[in-house]
Design a protein around this nucleic acid. Structure first.
Lengths: 339, 339
DNA sequence: CTGTTAGCGCGTTCAA
DNA sequence: TTGAACGCGCTAACAG
C-alpha cells in the first residue's frame, strides 16, 4: 500500500513549490495561468486531492456544524418535528458548504462527546445543558444555540417560540369548545426545572385554567416521550382508567399515536374524543388526518438556529435569543364537546 | 481574546514535557501517578482540553462516519425507513465513539462534498455512485458501503436484501388474492439503469406476472418519490383516471400516503381498495394501521453497514456484500379481491 | 519505569 | 513565486 500523494509530491513533479500548488487549488489568481495548468494536470495525473483534514487543521475550521443528541438517537430522530428542524439546519449548512454532524453521547457520555466534537458550533434541542457540558463548551470557545431551550442565558443563544403563551392558547381553544374532562399528555421534564420546555408550557396551561376558573386538579396530567408509540401507550392507559373528552398533547407525534389508539378502540376521533396536538408536523409532509394543532415551523427553527450559529462563528454580533411565531391551526379533531 | 490553552502551556506550568502531558490524557500508565495528577490538575486549572482536530490530525483518523445524502436532505430524511437505517448506523457509531456526519451536496455538488468530507468512511443509500465520485473515493482511499446499491462491485461494498425476489414475493401475494387491476407505484429510477433498486424490483414484478401469465401491459405502473405526500398525490392521479383494486408500492411511506388519499375519498382501505407496502416501517414505531408489507429491518441494514465500514477502516477482511433477510408481513390492507 | 527530545502529519500563509 | 514558520498534539527512539 503506497503512501497517499501529498502536496509535496505534486510540487516536485510539477516543478513548483508547495505554496504554488496550494495557490493553484485555492487562489489561482496568485500564480500564472501556466503554473496553474501544469499543477492541476500533475495533480490529476498523480491522483491528488488536498487532504480536507489537514486543510481544516491549518485553517482552524471544521466546516461542520454539530447537532447534539441528548440520549437515544432513536427517539429524537423518530419525531417528524425534529426531522423538520434538522432539515432546516441542513439547508443552511448546504449553502455555507458545511456538513452536519450528529453527535451521539460518546461512550454514553455527553460531555465526552462535546469534548471531542470536531465542529465549529453546536446545536441542541429541547434539553438543558448541564454545568459540566457548558464549562467544556466555554473552554473550547464553542458557539452554542439551544433550540427550545432556556431563553435567557449568557453563553447559550436560543431559538424558540413563546411556549407559555402558545400552550395557554392551545388549552384555551379546548376549553372554549366546552371540554372539561381533559387529559393532558406533557413532554417529560428532562430536568425537574421550570425552565424546561415542558415546564414553560405547563405554566401556560395553568394560566388558561385559571382564566376559566377551573381547578387544576380536575385535569388528568401525564407525560410521554415524543414518539407515536409512546402516545399510543399513554392514551391506552388513560382510556383504561378514565374517559376524557379531549386529549391535549405537547407534540403531534404523541397526538398521532393517541389518535391511532382511539381508532383502534373503535371510537371516532373528533366525534367521540377530541385531540389537540402541538408542532404542526403536517407542514413537513406528514399525513395528520386533520389534526388540530399549534403550528410552529420546525424548518424555520432550524434555519434560524444555523444562521445564528454562523453569525457567531464569523464573529458577528448575534442576537442572544430569537423568538419565532406560532399559530393555532384549526383541524377536524377538536370538536365541541357533546352535551 | 486570549489564545487557546495548548498542550505547551500545560507542560510549562506543570513542569513536565509535552509528551508527558499527552500521556496523561491518553495513556496514564506511561507516567507516574504523581505526574498524572499534577498535569490533570494544571489542565483543569488553566482550562485545557486537547484539541480534537489536532488530535485526529496526528492520529490520522476523523472519528466520524459519513452518510452521503444524494439530493435533498428533505426527502431522504422524511422517510421513516431512512431514519431507521440512520438509527442503526448511529448505534454502532456510538459504540465505537464515532460521530455520524450527514453530507449534503456541497454547493450542490456531490463530488465536491466527497472531496471535502472529513470522515473515515462513507455510506450511501439507494443511489448509484457516479464514476467521478468513485474515482475521488478511490484516490482518497475512502471505504464505502452502498446500502441498497449495486451488489457486485470491486470497490464499493454493499448491504441490501434480495430486491428482485422480495418484489416478486410482494406481487405474488397480491396476485394470489385475485387482484388483476393493479397499480404499481415504483420508486423513481435514479438512473435509467436496471442495476438500481427500482430496476431490480421491477424485474421481480415481471417474474411474478409471468408466473401468473399476466401481460405486463395490464398493470398500471407509475413512480413516486418515497414520501407520504408523493404517495397521496400519485394515488390521487391514478384514482382520477382509473379504478385499480390494489396499490402496490415500493415503500411504506408512499403506501401510507396512498391510504390517506383513499380514506380522504371516503373509501375504505382493504375492503374497497387493497394496499401493499414495502419496508416495514412499523418496526420503527410508526403507526401503519395494519399495512400489509414486505418487511426488512432498516435498523439492521444500518448496523451491518456501519460494522462493515468499521471492519474496512480497521483494515480487516470484510465481505464485499451482505444480504439481509426480508419477509412478508400480513396486515389488514391486502384483502381478497371482490368478485 | 519515568520522562524527554525531536520529528511528524499536510496544507496554509506571510514576509521576502 | 518561494522558503520557512505555523497549527497542535502524537509517538518512536532514547536517556536517566
Amino acid at each position: 500500500m503506497s503512501k497517499r500523494t501529498t502536496i509535496q509530491d505534486i510540487a516536485e513533479k510539477a516543478g513548483y513549490s508547495k505554496a504554488a500548488v496550494s495557490f493553484a487549488f485555492n487562489d489561482p489568481s496568485k500564480i500564472s495561468k501556466e503554473a496553474h495548468d501544469r499543477i492541476l494536470a500533475t495533480a490529476r495525473e498523480l491522483g491528488y486531492i488536498p487532504d480536507p483534514m489537514a486543510r481544516n487543521f491549518s485553517r482552524g475550521r471544521h466546516m461542520a456544524l454539530g447537532f447534539l443528541l441528548p440520549q437515544m438517537l432513536q427517539e429524537s430522530l423518530q419525531n417528524p418535528y425534529t426531522q423538520s428542524v434538522i432539515r432546516g439546519i441542513g439547508e443552511v449548512c448546504q449553502e455555507h458548504g458545511y456538513m452536519l454532524t450528529l453527535i451521539p453521547p460518546l461512550h454514553s457520555s455527553v460531555s465526552e462527546a462535546v469534548k471531542n466534537a470536531t465542529v465549529d458550533g453546536l446545536m441542541t434541542m429541547g434539553f438543558v445543558l448541564s454545568g459540566k457540558v457548558r464549562s467544556i463548551l466555554r473552554i473550547r470557545r464553542m458557539p452554542v444555540v439551544s433550540i427550545d431551550g432556556e431563553a435567557d442565558d449568557d453563553d447559550v443563544h436560543s431559538v424558540s417560540i413563546d411556549d407559555e403563551k402558545a400552550a395557554e392558547l392551545q388549552l384555551r381553544k379546548v376549553l372554549e369548545k366546552g371540554h372539561r374532562r381533559i387529559a393532558i399528555i406533557a413532554l417529560p421534564d428532562d430536568a425537574y426545572e421550570s425552565s424546561s420546555i415542558a415546564g414553560r408550557r405547563r405554566k401556560g396551561y395553568g394560566n388558561a385554567l385559571s382564566a376559566f376558573s377551573i381547578p387544576p386538579e380536575s385535569i388528568i396530567v401525564s407525560s410521554a416521550k415524543a414518539t407515536f408509540r409512546s402516545g399510543m401507550e399513554t392514551a391506552g392507559r388513560i382510556l383504561d382508567a378514565s374517559s376524557p373528552t379531549c386529549f391535549v398533547t405537547m407534540s403531534d407525534a404523541v397526538a398521532i399515536g393517541v389518535m391511532s389508539e382511539i381508532r383502534r378502540r373503535g371510537l371516532t376521533v373528533g366525534d367521540d374524543i377530541s385531540v389537540m396536538g402541538f408542532d404542526g408536523i403536517e407542514d413537513s409532509g406528514f399525513p395528520c388526518y386533520g389534526l388540530s394543532t399549534i403550528a410552529q415551523s420546525g424548518e424555520e427553527k432550524g434555519i434560524r438556529s444555523a444562521e445564528l450559529l454562523f453569525m457567531m462563528i464569523d464573529g458577528k454580533e448575534a442576537p442572544s435569543s430569537i423568538i419565532i411565531p406560532y399559530e393555532y391551526r384549526e383541524g377536524t379533531t377538536l370538536k365541541e364537546v357533546k352535551a
